[in-house]
Design a protein around this nucleic acid. Sequence first.
DNA 1: ACCATGTCAATAACCGGTTAGATAGATAGA
DNA 2: TCTATCTATCTAACCGGTTATTGACATGGT
Lengths: 195, 195
Amino acid sequence: MASDSRPERTRDAARTKQRLLDAARDEFAEYGIAGGRVERIAAAARCNKALIYAYFDSKDALFDAAFAAHVQAHLDRVNFDGTDLPAYAERLFEIFEDDPAVIRLASWYRLERSNGPGLPAVISANQTRLEKLRQAQSEGTLTDRWDATAILVLVQSIASAWATLNPEFSATTAPDRPTRRLAVIDAVSRLIAPD
Amino acid sequence: MASDSRPERTRDAARTKQRLLDAARDEFAEYGIAGGRVERIAAAARCNKALIYAYFDSKDALFDAAFAAHVQAHLDRVNFDGTDLPAYAERLFEIFEDDPAVIRLASWYRLERSNGPGLPAVISANQTRLEKLRQAQSEGTLTDRWDATAILVLVQSIASAWATLNPEFSATTAPDRPTRRLAVIDAVSRLIAPD
DNA sequence: ACCATGTCAATAACCGGTTAGATAGATAGA
DNA sequence: TCTATCTATCTAACCGGTTATTGACATGGT
């Protein structure tokens, strides 16, 4: 959001593009693609609406660019480790808690862009993870009561459990963050614990 | 969708209202609130757009009505059982697999209607479930390593794990439905298994 | 001067919501 | 039974505001 700190009066396309990406991320995280307004994005980026169509081709393309950039940033951070899934789940949990926008963006993406080829970065990241899990299984350091895909899906689902709560749950008293984190770590540990 | 099977030429407000609710459910499940078009809903219900505003007040209210009706139907079906959580998760899983619209509607609801009071039916259903879980815990028939809220959240998250996959996962070969169901049941069983 | 960078203003389409009126069926009086 | 009346149900046409998108123009840097 606040990616430019200096007065920076000079024209700088790269910087402007980044401001647009940041503004688009916030706008789309809040309202989704259909609900997001390019007018608001341009205003938040302190530039003209037409620039969006100069730098990106369309509203959809802008969403894709913003989403890809955001996902890439987090992909670098999670640092998947097939030999320590509880720690992986914990890092995922921390990301979702620190940055609620990422789960909302991913949800919008799933709902509004379910067609399309999918992000290459995510696809290759998934494949790498599945390979690591299968290797750990063949080495005997990871349970093979489920196949690798199921394990990855279950772990990620548990890690994001608290981030995808129904609005109805907020009313009830939810545990505090340390308790939630522990629940995630424990759940994954039990899931993959050897018999 | 096909709730009226007979020619049914006569005017029937209840039936028309139901057609609108069904059409709204399909439209909103596909496109969400912001992306849903009342024109399409009216066309699918074979009636005029203005009728929507006669029977319901607004697009948002129509979504709420359609969502509440759909949720209520499934609430009656799940039949929560605090003493057999794997079976509960299995029933949830079957619902999500049989009717993908329910998970999409719930996602839209969470994203686009996160404010608002929440559905009373869901709130009271949650409270009832939490009470049942707490009672099972106090009776010693359910683990108390987590509090009831965490257990419910984790179980529901696991049950919906396969229904909330990223589009990128569809590319990879996902297990078949019986395998997915077993993974859900086993995961919940392990989660709540006594030490 | 020249090009990248950015602004301005217009436009065509669209969308949620409204209004006045038509039509079918029920009701009641004779 | 026949018909005038009434009401719920439904429709066609329209409106004001909003939206994404574009082409012509300005400006700054080098």
